[in-house]
Write a protein that binds this DNA or RNA. Structure first.
Lengths: 213, 213
DNA sequence: AGAAGTCTAGTCAAGTTTGACTACTTGCCG
DNA sequence: CGGCAAGTAGTCAAACTTGACTAGACTTCT
């Protein structure tokens, strides 16, 4: 699964009600276009698809005050709320998620209660450790390693990345357990969306200036 | 771009001539179904598409000796050869590639001359360093970090992974410069495909026993 | 004032990925 | 010897992603 659905659901959810362009802007604000496949086509597709599947409610709205075609506003249904949390939990706890999914998960981390966030991250560490040992076993045939040739370097890479991922996750767990951040149900929540009309301070910044593909 | 094209081209190339099922088996042999989207549909699609685009030559072959529908064998054209090396170079040198692409690149590393392999990996390290500093800048607004809230953790994750990726790459460069492995043009090449009829020693091993999605 | 550019909001065709399914053969078990 | 699991080779529809494109309204420069 890609990160799009989680990102879109999360964005709509923080607004309460949002149209595609708003979602698109939030994702850019979060830098998500840099580390995920959050392109217009994907976003609008996800919105329509999830509306069709009953996770979002679509309201047709008169053409906006500021030009452009008529908009559609979306709102989470109960099924959408459930899906959001399911995706969020999966993003945080499963080690075999691409980095974009994990990033999105971190972005919505505070929508969970503190204890659950910690539990999910601990499960993630456990998964990484298992995966690590599975990889070493798989790529270690009868005669011990060394006869693998350079293919062993693939294993090496995965082991390295599992270790580093686990280390980072442990650090995050520590910070959370140490009382950092304000989680769900702990008071004034963190608001990470652009208000109507607020400009995006990062909009024109190129994070990726060398990227000219 | 996903890793599929590189994997498929590389597999066909090592055989000289191969049909889809053979490619499918090689990828499983390499463990690629674990770390990439190498599913039957994707493989056959890639073969057909690349044949249509002139990178592969398709030969229709009589139904195999051992059951199943008629097969098609493929062979690289010159354009295919060029594409293979272009993808391989991109996979190794660009930091902003998903892990599956890098893995595939490592798998075909020895198809390049030693000096070029090192050069590409060094470029990769450079890219990672640039990306690292771009991320820290992007997520460090006027007032210094700290007012980001948990969103800073996303940055933290990317920085961590850039550092760890660079470290691993440097290690690999060292091993290669230290004389490890036999690269293109240095004598008997490493053969990483299953011969006709050879059984896959890993075929039934589950690398991922906990994965029950 | 007119041209050029940007903002808003979204569509579309082409390409890719997924996961389940087909159809035929051989090996093996009781 | 009947059946059924496993292997061989591949197809297909549905979903998703990509990158380019549309079209109106407002802004800015000359």
């Amino acid at each position: 699964m890609s990160a799009i659905r989680l990102l879109v659901l999360g964005a709509v959810r923080q607004h309460g009600r949002a149209h595609g362009y708003q979602v698109r802007n939030d994702l850019e604000y979060w830098g998500a276009h840099e580390w995920s496949n959050a392109k217009p086509g994907s976003i609008y597709h996800a919105l329509k698809q999830m509306a069709k599947q009953g996770m979002l409610l679509a309201h047709d709205i008169a053409p906006s005050t500021a030009g452009g075609p008529p908009r559609t506003e979306y709102e989470l249904t109960e099924a959408g709320e459930a899906e959001f949390f399911a995706l969020l939990r999966a993003a945080l706890s499963q080690h075999d998620q691409k980095a974009d999914v994990l990033s999105a998960g971190i972005g919505f981390l505070l929508d969970l209660p503190r204890t659950e966030a910690v539990a999910l991250l601990k499960e993630r560490v456990r998964g990484l450790e298992e995966w690590r040992s599975a990889v070493t076993e798989y790529y270690t045939p009868e005669g011990g390693p060394g006869q693998l040739g350079h293919i062993g370097e693939i294993m090496n890479m995965w082991v390295h990345s599992a270790d580093s991922g686990a280390e980072w996750t442990r650090g995050l767990i520590e910070r959370i357990e140490g009382g950092a951040y304000v989680f769900a149900g702990e008071g004034e929540p963190f608001v990470g969306v652009l208000a109507e009309g607020q400009e995006n301070p990062y909009a024109t910044r190129a994070v990726h200036p060398e990227d000219d593909r």
